[in-house]
Amino acid sequence: MLRTAQLIVAVSLAVALAASEEIPLSERHSSYQDMSAETRAMQDHDAENPGMLWVLDGEALWQTKAGKAAIACAGCHGDAETSMKGVAARYPAYDARRGTAIDLAGRINVCRTDHQQSPELARESRDLLALTALVARQSHGLPIDSDEARLRPFIDAGRAIFTARQGQLDLACAHCHDANRGKKLAGITLSQGHPTGYPLYRLEWQTLGSLQRRLRNCLIGMRAEPYAYGAPEYIALEAYLMWRARGMPLESPAVRP
């Protein structure tokens, strides 16, 4: 696996697409707006949004003692509604102690290992998704607040991956989500590829999934080798996507087709 520094060098050498194709800030919108009225209603009404089942699971886990420290999240953080408000809107964040960027799921796992003294939860496991959904829910409707100053190298690395061709089809993320955004191809309207809804309930998956799972799906579509969950490439992409969507409101748990 690449170290972060190597990653930055490697990707900045890659062929990049024109930066001029980046979406003007005023033209950005969530793919929520491209969804059918029925799918939007599913997202809008808590009682009909299956993603809320994970938020409920998260609430129960938040109160459950875990690890050698036998302490619950609530034991240190109190009420999630107050202590976690706005937190998800600034992730990935720079972790000074580790000297690197860390995403929300990674941050939760740090609390698991360092503060609860319990094993990490696996990426995409129900429990980690549930805790992430609970924390993300507390930023519902709040604008994305990217810590540009400290995340700059990661945002740049993410942009380099986003604009570099990769995989057997020799496509870049930007080909679909910048250059051809809004076009209807093969019956699908290509979105701008914003991270505003994650973790979210995808009808295709019939379950809740992380942004990394979504990116994995895109990479498979490009016939490229997906990165391992938690890899620095994903964190860099997440940092870039959040910066690209800065100011847009978070929608988690969103619903997508």
Partner: peptide, 18 residues
């Protein structure tokens, strides 16, 4: 662009993202 659009269409038509 034109070649890319064909490739994208191919990727999506093949069930691309799955």
């Amino acid at each position: 662009t034109r070649r890319e659009v064909l490739k994208i269409t191919g990727a999506l038509a093949l069930g691309g993202t799955a």
